[in-house]
Design a protein around this nucleic acid. Structure first.
Lengths: 335, 335
DNA sequence: CTGAAAGCGCTTACAG
DNA sequence: CTGAAAGCGCTTACAG
């Protein structure tokens, strides 16, 4: 049951460990080792079921072949989809992924430092929360490969990839306006995040572009209880001024909208249109007919990983790259 | 920007690396190192921001302080909740968690072997799928700490923890019967999994116990397209024999039920009751009034981790332990 | 073409 | 009480 080591293979093949290492790492040619010998070594390794001890490799090379994925929360469909894509893509590059969720302010710093401190990962993909600014800065300054996603810090030069929030909202607004809606409410959250600002701007610019002067914005408080938020949303939907469409600026807000629909017994004000900026996959829980601005998670994830890989590849510092992915408009059909 | 090593600390403190190692690993007493010296060393380490290189520790000790969590799918609320609990609990024991999802048959074996082969994790928590039987057996035979959850293989002696499926279904059935429902349909999946068998048995035994002879079972085919499944479920709900209650045996089936509700425009047959074996958290997407048998994810996760830790602790072989957690009945209210 | 040797950063018997 | 030394399993200059 003992694991076979490189040395074992060397002994079995009658060569030195160095030779085995060269062959198994594809440097046979380069080291001008005869084909016959190389094949023999490979055969022995295969037969004995040899797998290099990655821990030893890591210690020796200083690379762990692991990536750290730090997200806000592990419960949530967005994370789930995201993580899966990252995992698959990373595997294609020969990397494994270690996850950490920040959940709350305190822990996040700890997690970061802990993983970082032990230098066990070769790079990071992070969904930053407002409190992480300094951690990210530290990471960037120590020249660690990092990619931010879903948000970023305007003051820090780190590559980031996110959905084009502005475009998403304007797309949705165009859709509504084209269908004749005019009294369009916008439900957002009172958090000072850059992506929220962009979404709000999209709403306002769209109205302005079409000469609609009525602006109806509901700011849901960041950390109210759910019930209170639902009450707010419910009032917003049902009360004056008699909106004919509602735009939910986030996934979570859309869910509050869904709950409101439930509460109202699925009896919405006549023809009320609902549209929502969707993370991912919550979509399918909405009733048919609801429109969503879908975040292209797969694309975001893939892009983030590419960005990270290119950083790891060159190792010579990090350039600030911003990639914005276009979201698409999807109408919840009956399938 | 160079990381400080143990040797650096030793030099700075004017002692040998061994002494530093002893002190930092809490073996000062045991090695009868003077308090003064120990404190000095600790102070130097703190000041220099020393963190041991875990890779080196792993190589030397043969322990990685990492756990492998292998699940069927990373997208899904069950995984998300589960993973979070495991992560937190593992951290409390000083372990990190590496995730891998099997998604499909081919990859799973690969993943397993790959992680296992590189001996990078100290133990495994696995949600087994039918095809993994041999992998699990191999793991168990090599005396690796493993805990199965959510399912298990009757033929393999590996500790496992799962919800008490039988109890869950009977609980739900009692609930329905008590409320006067008699024509209760059971929607299940035609997969030969031990937990499905137990759920079905719970349904049948409950009927029998109350002398209800009408058995209405819908077997939804394991890998049909979604539309076809929905059609089946829809027929089952609306068609003869005029069921007055439906029991969905899994989370996924419950979602098909939800979709059916959507399709029917929320107009269910009069007073039709729906009950569903819920993984986790999908619950909140259902309309109010629906009853769920809730899997206590947190408890399952914690138990699984405890089981794993105790195995890792003693290292002397694995005993077959089965832990069944009681699920609870929850009615989706308006909050 | 191939091997002996150093070294990645630790831990831990072993010898004072 | 404390230090010198071996060794975990690899990779990679270096020397033939």
């Amino acid at each position: 049951m003992k694991r076979v080591s490189l040395k074992d293979i060397a002994r079995l093949a009658g060569v030195s460990p160095s030779t085995v290492s060269f062959v198994l790492n594809g440097k046979a040619k380069q080291m001008r080792i005869s084909n016959a010998l190389a094949e023999k070594i490979i055969e022995v390794a295969r037969r004995e079921g040899y797998h290099p001890n990655q821990v030893a490799v890591s210690l020796r090379t200083g690379k762990s072949n692991m990536l750290g994925l730090i997200v806000e929360s592990m419960s949530g469909n967005f994370f789930a989809s995201f993580a899966r894509v990252i995992e698959v893509e990373a595997a294609a590059h020969g990397y494994k992924v270690v996850y950490a969720s920040t959940e709350n302010q305190q822990q996040k710093a700890h997690e970061l430092v802990s993983i970082l401190g032990h230098q066990q990962v070769d790079g990071y993909i992070v969904t930053p929360t407002p409190g992480m600014e300094e951690d990210i800065r530290a990471l960037a300054e120590s020249k660690k490969p990092v990619v931010l996603m879903d948000s970023y810090f305007p003051g820090i030069d780190v590559p980031h990839v996110l959905v084009n929030n502005y475009e998403g909202v304007t797309k949705g607004m165009e859709h509504l306006i084209e269908k004749g809606y005019r009294r369009i409410g916008f439900v957002t959250v009172d958090l000072n995040l850059v992506q929220m600002q962009e979404r709000l701007k999209g709403y306002r610019d769209s109205l302005q572009k079409h000469n609609i002067s009525e602006e109806h914005i509901l700011y849901v408080h960041y950390d109210f209880e759910r019930e209170r938020a639902i009450a707010q949303v419910s009032d917003f939907i049902s009360g004056p001024p008699g909106l004919d469409a509602i735009f939910f600026a986030t996934n979570y807000l859309g869910l509050l909208g869904l709950e409101t629909i439930h509460r109202l017994g699925y009896k919405l004000p006549d023809n009320l249109a609902m549209i929502c900026f969707d993370d991912h996959d919550v979509f399918r829980f909405y009733p048919p007919g609801i429109t969503c601005i879908r975040q292209p998670v797969e694309e975001i994830a893939k892009t983030a990983l590419e960005l990270l890989m290119s950083q790891i590849g060159k190792t010579n510092g990090v350039t600030n790259t911003k990639v914005e992915i276009s979201p698409s408009l999807v109408v919840r059909g009956t399938s």
